[in-house]
Structures are given as C-alpha cells and as structure tokens.
Design a protein around this nucleic acid. Structure first.
Lengths: 161, 161
DNA sequence: CTAAACTTAAGTAAATTGGTAAACTTTATG
DNA sequence: CATAAAGTTTACCAATTTACTTAAGTTTAG
C-alpha cells in the first residue's frame, strides 16, 4: 500500500529536470547527488523513464537527460505508472476487472471509488505545478501545488490524516 | 501500492460476520469456506482482528467469532489498519512525518492530499453500509455502498479508472 | 583515442507475501 | 472425565519484491 522508492526517485528526477532552466541536458550523476538518490539505482530507473517516453537521453560525453514534453503535460500519475505499471489499490481493480466474486461486489466498488479519488489528485498534479511551488518557495504566496490541486478538483474532504 | 490478501480476507471475514443474522458465533471454518479463504491462513488473521478489538472469540466446542461493535461503527479503514497498520501511501507520510527533505516538500503534500481523499472513502464506508447493499442485492434499488459513500462525501470526481 | 556518459545484464541481501503445518489450550457435551 | 470441537501459538517455507551494487559493455564529443 505504499509507493516504491523507485517511483519516488522517478518523481524527484522528473521534478529535478523540470526545474532545470538551462537547456543543457542533465546528467544522472548531478541529479543523483542533488536528489539524494543512489547513482547506480538511478541509472536503472532512467531507462524505464525513457522507454515510457517521458525523457530523451543523449549518450556520450556532453550527454544527459531532458524531458520530451512540457512539465504542464506530465502528471504524477503518469510518472508513477511509468515505473510501477497501472495503479490498482486492490487486486480486483487490475485490468478492466469486475470482481469475479459477485456481479457487483460492494467491496470492489468501494475500492474503485477510493482509487478514483486518489488518482484524481495524482492526475491533476503536474510537474509544472510542483515546480511553481518549489520556486515560489520562500515568497509570500502560500499556494501549494496540493492546494491548487485541491481547488482544481474542488472537493477536498475534511479529515485528519 | 496494493491491499494485501490478509487485509482483503479480513474485510470479507468481517462482512461475513456482520451479515450473519443468528446470534450464534460463526466458526472460522464456515467463514473460510463461504468466503474462499484458505482456512489455515484465516486462522492466522483472526487473532489479529481480535487483538485489534474488532471481534470476540469463544474457544472450545460451540465457540466461534462475533463482532464487538455494531456494523455501523466499523469502517473499512479500521479493518485495514487493524491488519496492515497505519495506511501511508508514501514513506514520508508515516507517523506525523513532515518530509525530511524540505520544510514543505511539494511532493509530500500532494501525496498527503491523495491519501486524505482515499481515506475519506474508506472511513465513510461501514460494514452496515456494505451489508445493506449485499442484501438489497437483486432488488430494484440500485444504491451501492460506494454510491452512498460518494454522496456522503459529496465530492466524487469524474475520472475514468 | 580517450574520457565522459548512458546501456545492459547480473547478482544479492533483506523484507514481504501468501501460505502450510503441527502442537497446544480451552470448553461444551455425553 | 473423556473426547471432540474450537480457537491459539509458534514455526516454517517458497516465491516475489525491494533496493541496491557490480561489472562489462557501447556511444560520442573533443
């Protein structure tokens, strides 16, 4: 029931690249150092992001990594699923999957709803939104990416975590 | 990122007991057969539900299991956390946990929001709601427990899963 | 041609998952 | 009080996943 380190590192990596202002491609080594990711582990994650079409990589001296899309077009959901495959909170939500137990299993439907609620947040959150917040950082404006998302899906529930 | 079998079986077990109309305690063996749970596995789960205070067990011949609370007072969240411990979609959400990376890490806050959305559903879903739906089963009324919950938290997001 | 950079393919220790098995304790009932 | 029915406890296990590490490539700028 928890995000893997791989996916967390993938998110940090994508965010690191999206925050990069030069148009030089970034090297894995820099990213690893800046984001506290074991280099040899990151080096394994990068090709997965590439085969998912999220980044381009340039080999050889002077090479590195850059994004293939605009940060505003890359959602957290997309990044997570690039690494972990489709998100399914319950086994019965894999694929199109209606529960095999009953035509309409009540448990199945509750998990489906919980998952929709969660995915809505991950889908509404883009790298652009996250970068904005990181960069407004110390400034007066206290809008968080999460707050943006919350207002976007205009339905945050009051509940202590 | 997925519910374990243990927790799924725990939910089925609790729902099975809540659906029981007699006030005879139910035996693990019956429950296992009815809910397609390997008996020897269920037998391992039952004591966990008991130490979480969700059920009482009666030993010896004629013994079995019954609920300690009313089905309307038992939420899915409670059952899941009895088995898996506190739900945390990201490592940085364990405990009270503010992210150690930044005072306000944008990634952390997004996951916190996603988790609140998900937990709201699991918390609003009680065994009573699920039993209602199972039993209205074939009838005309098409209210699902999930639909009830959705209206309760009055904010379901449109999104294809 | 060589150092910088990504690529590919193994390997690995530890934890988790989903079970199974066996020995034990408690208790109703005859 | 004997016995069978029921839950309890403990231990074990194989497969998978996780989070890495290592090492031997390949590509390319300069």
């Amino acid at each position: 029931m928890q995000l893997t380190r791989r996916a967390e590192y993938a998110i940090r990596t994508m965010l690191d690249i999206a925050s990069n202002l030069d148009d030089q491609p970034l090297m894995s080594k820099e990213i690893a150092a800046r984001q506290d990711i074991p280099l040899n582990f990151l080096i394994q994650i990068v090709p997965e992001l590439r085969s998912a079409g999220l980044i381009h990589t340039v080999r050889g001296s002077g090479g590195g990594i850059y994004l293939t899309k605009k940060p505003s077009e890359i959602s957290l959901r997309y990044i997570v699923e690039a690494i972990e495959g489709p998100i399914a909170l319950n086994q019965c939500l894999i694929g199109d999957a209606s529960c095999e137990r009953q035509p309409r299993c009540p448990i199945h439907e509750v998990w489906a709803l919980a998952q929709r609620q969660m995915l809505a947040v991950l889908e509404a959150t883009t790298l652009a939104g996250l970068v904005d917040q990181s960069q407004s950082g110390k400034k007066a404006g206290k809008t968080s990416a999460a707050a943006d998302v919350a207002s976007k899906i205009n339905n945050e529930v009051e509940l202590e975590v």
